[in-house]
Design a protein around this nucleic acid. Structure first.
Length: 366
DNA sequence: AAGCGTTGCATGGCGGTTCA
DNA sequence: TGAACCGCCATGCAACGCTT
């Protein structure tokens, strides 16, 4: 059912992307109806959330809980909730938990292979998955000048560039920063990829004595990433502080045990809390979820709150490794059919991707 | 033969130190 | 100051031997 008076709305779909929506039968009475109308008209897939511009509050946007808030010629903003984005996007859904069973009723959650959805709002340093072709970053101006000059000399007289410690330091710094965008704990193969990308772009940096021309760079990068992690840890980077022996020693008799780091395909292993949120505010939201979960036909609210508390939930799993029973008691919504289906979809995507990698690896030998 | 526990080796992370 | 290195410790895996 809709109000019969035709209405028009300004719909903000994104930055520099605004459309006009004409509703011949007026503004729908139900929010679901408005959602499906917007999704159909603008071809949006997946879950969306709407905000409306409130003129009483200096034209700020507020969450739309009822279409009665809307008026003809009003403005709404569409926020896409990326609960199941494609594999290579920034909000990849591959943070995970392994369910291990010590005994029948004492199963616990540790970091490994069940997929949990990331919150689109949480701020994670881990924003992208490892790229197909590693992009060598731009170095400082003077380093770039020296490398260009070195490349020129390499092409004319096959002469290698003698790298000063300043240039080496700049190269390692920029590469470490670039690597960290994708992985805090890169594996051996990643160092190989990066060093090969480096000497491909700057052949003057090749090492004639090494079997592949870049073994030394690979080793340097390993050291650099270790030192870089130490540096970030000292600055309080939560993803790395979680493995600090000193902080673990407070609660753990064997602090060197269980280094908490991402497993295969994990992107948001230890995301930061959403901007402006604290542990207390998210705990409050968790308590609200306990109420919301008892309300029938409340999936939209639950999905939104679950996405919003994603980082808080991840930190709880990584830090405390709660038993499944405790975790289920604290987060009953996570075990609802819809959330489980979302996770299974993500597991399926990861599995297919993994199998493709295996097949590619196999065929590379044929 | 299958299952299980033990052992040894390779690899990797952390904290601290050395050295240019 | 930062790259490079060291020692300690943990994990993962394959090989091996023992038991059933």
């Amino acid at each position: 059912m809709a109000r019969l008076k035709p209405a028009r709305l300004k719909v903000i779909l994104g930055e520099n992307n605004t459309e006009k929506l004409t509703l011949p039968n007026g503004i729908p009475e139900s929010l679901d109806e408005l959602h499906s109308k917007i999704k159909t008209v603008f071809g949006i897939e997946g879950n969306i959330r709407l905000q409306y511009m409130d003129r009483d509050f200096d034209n700020e946007f507020f969450n739309l809980n009822s279409t009665s808030e809307l008026q003809d010629l009003g403005t709404i903003k569409v926020i896409q909730e990326q609960t199941n984005p494609p594999l290579n996007t920034a909000n990849e859904t591959t943070s995970s938990h392994l369910v291990s069973f010590d005994s029948d009723d004492n199963a616990s959650l540790t970091s490994a292979d069940t997929v949990i959805i990331s919150s689109p709002e949480s701020v994670s340093s881990r924003t992208q998955q490892w790229p197909e072709d590693f992009p060598v970053p731009k170095f400082s101006y003077d380093t770039e000048l020296q490398l260009e000059k070195g490349n020129l000399e390499y092409h004319t007289s096959n002469k290698m560039l003698t790298v000063s410690s300043r240039v080496k330091s700049d190269i390692l710094n920029r590469l470490a920063e670039q690597i960290y965008k994708y992985k805090a704990y890169p594996e051996d193969i990643h160092f190989c990829i990066v060093s090969e990308a480096l000497i491909k772009k700057y052949p003057c940096l090749r090492e004639p004595g090494s079997f592949n021309g870049c073994y030394g760079w690979k080793q340097r990068l390993k050291y650099k990433m270790g030192n870089y992690r130490t540096q970030l840890k000292l600055q309080g980077c939560p993803e790395l502080s979680v493995n600090s022996l000193k902080s673990k020693a407070v609660t753990d008799a064997f602090p060197a045990k269980k280094v908490k780091r991402p497993k295969r395909a994990e992107a948001n292993f230890y995301p930061s809390l959403p901007t402006g949120e604290t542990l207390e505010s998210l705990e409050k939201e968790r308590l609200e979820l306990l109420t919301e979960v008892r309300i029938r036909r409340n999936e939209r609210v639950i999905t939104g709150k679950m996405a919003h508390t994603f980082a808080y939930r991840r930190q709880e799993v990584v830090n405390q490794e709660p038993s499944i029973k405790d975790f289920k008691d604290r987060w009953p919504a996570l075990f609802q059919q819809k959330e489980v289906i979302i996770k299974l979809k993500s597991i399926y995507v990861c599995f297919v991707y993994y199998m493709m990698c295996v097949v590619c690896f196999f065929f590379s030998f044929i």
